[in-house]
């Protein structure tokens, strides 16, 4: 676990964050059920939070060190530990007081290997949390995502439209087929179950919805609806409001990668002299990635 066990007094990581709500938003977007285990991986580049379900769905939240006001990393290697995602988000949420900015310090490990959080900007009203950590499961948390060929198969769609489309597909439910075709350039979501529903994003017809499209051959894969839904079900309000694009890429074997961007910028109205351009700063963005494995059909609908 910790690689600095030789000197237990020096924590592996001490960092400060000035926008707790942004972190709550980012982590909430990968919280698709109440009780979920997550693995935190610390490195000199930042913190990665990884969540996994049923060997079919994995989500990663990348909190780069640039998101933090300060980031002191002293471990060698990459310490990994498990925490309950729900507890982590609920604890972080208590630090986020509406109507005013709240800064916190995150420290790992505590005296009993806990993840420690405490508020730093209010000397006479200190909030603190100690979250029990555990040794992460030995299963591989890495889904090797490899490009499907020389040309990536990907498209970028407005986040709100993607969420709406996936929400609509709840009605047919069960299994959703995603089809990418180069001519005419188009993405189709097809649901067959209690009924049939097909949603088409035509690249030339909807350039304001389908922002980018790359595909050189027809591909089609099926994904379980519940996993696909998890990729957008808890999309934070800020993502829908900003409505940047969400990027979907199909990799080798049909592995689907869904990427969202969550703003972790401090609201610019409160400290215009410090962070007036925060919303434009790419460094104040948390990256969210979901990996969804395709369903294995008896008669695989595969690369044409």
């Amino acid at each position: 676990m910790s690689s600095s066990e030789a000197d237990p007094d020096i924590p592996d990581l001490v960092c400060q964050l000035d926008n707790v709500q942004g972190m709550v938003d980012a982590l909430s977007s990968v919280r698709w059920k109440r009780h979920q285990d997550s693995v935190l991986e610390l490195s000199e580049h930042g913190i990665v939070v990884i969540v996994e379900e049923s060997g079919c769905l994995q989500a990663k939240v990348y909190l780069k060190k640039e998101l933090f006001v300060s980031y002191e990393y002293r471990a060698e290697g990459r310490p990994r530990f498990g925490v309950s995602l729900g507890v982590f988000v609920d604890c972080l949420n208590t630090f986020s007081v509406s109507g005013r900015s709240s800064s916190i310090e995150i420290c790992y490990p505590g005296p009993d290997m806990q993840l420690l959080l405490k508020s730093v900007d209010t000397p006479d009203a200190c909030i603190y949390a100690e979250i029990r950590t555990k040794v992460p499961d030995t299963i591989s948390w890495d889904y090797n995502f490899e490009p499907a060929g020389s040309t990536p198969l990907s498209f970028t769609v407005k986040s709100a439209a993607l969420k709406e489309a996936i929400d609509d597909l709840e009605w047919p439910g069960s299994s959703i087929q995603i089809v990418l075709q180069p001519d005419p350039p188009c993405v189709q979501f097809r649901g067959e179950g209690h009924g049939d529903l097909q949603i088409d994003f035509m690249y030339y017809a909807n350039t304001d919805l389908l922002i980018a499209f790359q595909c050189d051959r027809l591909v089609s894969y099926r994904y379980k609806y519940k996993f696909l839904r998890a990729t957008t079900s808890n999309m934070p309000g800020s993502v829908i409001k900003d409505n940047r694009g969400s990027k979907l890429t199909i990799g080798r074997g049909g592995m689907l990668k869904v990427q969202h961007l969550v703003s972790v910028a401090r609201p610019s109205t409160q400290h215009p002299h410090i962070d007036s351009a925060a919303y434009q700063q790419p460094s104040r963005i948390a990256y969210i990635e979901f990996f969804v494995k395709p369903e294995v059909d008896e008669e695989p609908v595969n690369d044409a």
Binding site: D124, I127, Y128
Partner: peptide
């Protein structure tokens, strides 16, 4: 609880 300790201290 078993997974966490969470508190707030108001001083002075």
């Amino acid at each position: 609880n078993t997974l966490t300790t969470l508190g707030v201290e108001f001083r002075k």
